[in-house]
């Protein structure tokens, strides 16, 4: 049951068709892990905290660097050299003291990924590496946890939601790691608003999934180009012999 303060704080959510007090309670009961507190992780975590996701895990092993500040809007100039999870958690708790923020100052590795992800309802992708994404994807498929993928580069970004067992997983469409000569943000740059756009889409998907609202971004990749300001959906199908979800 929502109290008086919650009814006021979440009023604009509660007014929406399909959310109401029941939907807001579902959000407050939900547990979401955001892996990566960088360009994507910043808007994801901000919007999920503001929306009232009750338990928000934030994982990142890095410290804030000056070069992060152009896009990682959860970190401010005075946060340089602080651990990213500490900087992010401080802002999130100030934004919404009514939620629980769990800090993981560590990387997701082959040794810890199953333990870290188990128990969450959804995992939001704020990472910058495909090996880490594959760990998230594999753990989510194993435990039946929703996974919201996103990636950015230059002026472009893309996103897709994985519902294990019923929709294509990341390995269905990205079966292997990229070529070592493939472009990265470190070499090619990234416009700060691009992770803002894609992170907002990921957060929207998490909220919809948590409440059971609308149509999820499944069975298709949404691609975005900031230069031509176009979005495209590209349909994707499950791969029957997918190494991760083929037998699920």
């Amino acid at each position: 049951m929502l109290d008086e303060h919650q009814l006021l704080r979440y009023d604009r959510n509660i007014l929406l068709n399909g959310i109401g007090a029941k939907g807001q309670q579902k959000l407050l009961n939900s547990k979401v892990l955001v892996v990566g507190a960088g360009g994507l992780g910043s808007p994801i975590a901000f919007y999920l905290a503001a929306a009232g996701v009750g338990t928000l895990g934030i994982m990142d092993a890095d410290d804030v660097d000056y070069s992060n500040l152009q896009r990682q809007i959860i970190h401010w100039t005075g946060d340089v050299n602080r651990p990213k999870v500490e900087s992010a958690a401080e802002k999130l708790k100030k934004l919404n003291p009514g939620i629980e923020v769990i800090e993981y100052r560590e990387r997701l590795t082959e040794k810890n990924y199953l333990d870290k992800i188990r128990g969450y309802d959804a995992v939001a992708d704020g990472t910058d590496s495909f090996p880490t994404r594959f760990l998230i994807n594999d753990a989510c498929v194993r435990y039946g946890i929703a996974y919201m993928y996103g990636g950015v580069l230059g002026f472009v970004g893309q996103a897709m939601t994985v519902i294990p067992g019923s929709t294509p997983c990341l390995r269905c469409i990205f079966p292997s790691e990229p070529d070592s000569n493939a472009p990265t943000c470190r070499e090619e740059g990234v416009l700060g608003t691009v992770p803002g756009v894609i992170g907002s889409i990921i957060a929207t998907e998490v909220i919809k999934y948590s409440i059971g609202l609308g149509e999820l971004l499944t069975g298709r990749i949404l691609t975005y180009d900031g230069l031509s300001m176009q979005f495209f959906n590209v349909d994707v199908e499950r791969t029957p012999d997918c190494p991760t979800c083929g037998g699920v």
Partner: peptide, 28 residues
């Protein structure tokens, strides 16, 4: 992607195939 499914480089093309090509979009 060919008609929505990931394919390897040795996939033989068929008339009317819909091919979508992506680089790795891996930043975060």
């Amino acid at each position: 992607l060919v008609n929505g499914k990931h394919q390897e480089l040795d996939y033989k093309l068929n008339d009317g195939d819909r091919v979508s090509l992506f680089p790795p979009v891996g930043g975060g």
